[in-house]
Computed example of a mutant assay.
Amino acid sequence: MRPDDWHLTEDVDDFLARAGEFLRSRPALHNTPLTTVEKLRTRQADAHGPAATVFGRLEPGGEVGAVFYRLPSRGLSVTPLTPGQADTLAAHLAGLGHSLPYVSAAHDTATAFAEAWQRRTGATPTLSKRIRLYRLGTLIPPEPLPEGRGRVVSEQDHEQLVRFCGEFCAAVGELPAVDADSWAGSRFADRHFTFWETPDGTPASMAAVTSMVAGMVRVDPVYTPARLRGRGYAGAVTVEVSRAALAAGATDVVLYADPANPTSNALYQRLGYVPITEWAVYDFSDATPEAG
């Protein structure tokens, strides 16, 4: 395995032509690159320009074995690698003079890359986040469901939706926060939202899904205001969007959960979601990549 087995491009169409089949081969595991790259493909202006997204594929012997992407001013997101593959990627990017604020990947891959990046650049990695990836097995609706109903969010709900998403960001510490002015450029703008309403029509919880790619849909986010928690609303709205995804033909329905939150993890498992891997993010201190 050599560093030059990694091939980089800023052309999203070229990247998909060469690596799309690999991404689609494991839609649950590759859910984040699938949705991110599809968004860039449909919004070409976001993928090109002075600060273009960089895509990479590992292709020794003509067969793609891994990919990565890096959005402008963001860190590295990469599919699972062996320690040797992680080292060749670190060597290649450091040799090209890349500077990375973080790496996000399956836990073992993120750890291997962080260690390799430290060796190559002197940057100190700090584990900043762990996330658990779930895939839906057999959907198990809770019994009884809370009173109320699920309802697809409409344009008339926009103000309430923005408020809920802003509260969600504040609750989980997600940055940048979202409000009415930043909505159009946020990660929430292209999601498909559903409310769970109480019998009097008050929105009590929300869940969203991504557009389907390669038969995969990701549930994200799920949010219930603190004053309304513990009443079954999050489970009800998660079942609502999960059932709708299956009815639309999804073969993989996935979601992420914070492993430090026992309540949400227990809920998703009761609903039929099965953990498939742990994800990790390592932040890097400033360092100077080695010359290529």
Score class of each variant (00 low, 15 high):
residue 3 P to R: 01
residue 3 P to V: 09
residue 4 D to M: 07
residue 5 D to A: 14
residue 7 H to F: 10
residue 13 D to A: 15
residue 18 R to P: 00
residue 18 R to K: 14
residue 19 A to D: 01
residue 21 E to H: 14
residue 23 L to Y: 08
residue 27 P to W: 10
residue 31 N to D: 12
residue 32 T to P: 01
residue 37 V to F: 11
residue 42 T to S: 10
residue 54 V to G: 04
residue 65 G to K: 14
residue 66 A to E: 07
residue 68 F to V: 00
residue 71 L to W: 03
residue 77 S to G: 10
residue 88 T to C: 05
residue 94 A to N: 08
residue 94 A to H: 05
residue 98 H to P: 04
residue 99 S to F: 11
residue 99 S to H: 13
residue 102 Y to G: 00
residue 103 V to C: 06
residue 105 A to S: 13
residue 109 T to S: 13
residue 110 A to R: 03
residue 110 A to L: 04
residue 112 A to I: 09
residue 115 E to P: 01
residue 115 E to H: 11
residue 118 Q to C: 11
residue 119 R to L: 10
residue 120 R to W: 11
residue 120 R to T: 05
residue 120 R to A: 15
residue 125 P to Q: 08
residue 125 P to G: 03
residue 125 P to I: 01
residue 128 S to N: 08
residue 129 K to V: 14
residue 132 R to V: 05
residue 134 Y to P: 03
residue 134 Y to W: 09
residue 137 G to V: 08
residue 137 G to R: 07
residue 140 I to P: 02
residue 141 P to Q: 07
residue 141 P to I: 01
residue 142 P to L: 09
residue 146 P to I: 05
residue 148 G to P: 05
residue 149 R to N: 06
residue 153 V to S: 09
residue 153 V to E: 13
residue 155 E to F: 07
residue 161 L to Y: 02
residue 162 V to M: 03
residue 163 R to K: 10
residue 165 C to F: 06
residue 170 A to F: 08
residue 179 D to K: 11
residue 186 S to H: 04
residue 187 R to M: 11
residue 192 H to P: 01
residue 194 T to R: 03
residue 197 E to F: 10
residue 198 T to A: 15
residue 206 M to N: 03
residue 210 T to Q: 06
residue 214 A to K: 05
residue 214 A to N: 04
residue 222 V to R: 02
residue 224 T to Y: 02
residue 233 Y to E: 05
residue 234 A to K: 08
residue 238 T to H: 00
residue 239 V to Y: 07
residue 240 E to T: 12
residue 242 S to T: 14
residue 243 R to G: 10
residue 247 A to R: 13
residue 249 G to Q: 12
residue 250 A to H: 04
residue 257 A to H: 00
residue 257 A to Y: 03
residue 258 D to H: 07
residue 265 N to S: 12
residue 270 R to W: 06
residue 274 V to K: 10
residue 274 V to E: 12
residue 275 P to M: 12
residue 276 I to N: 00
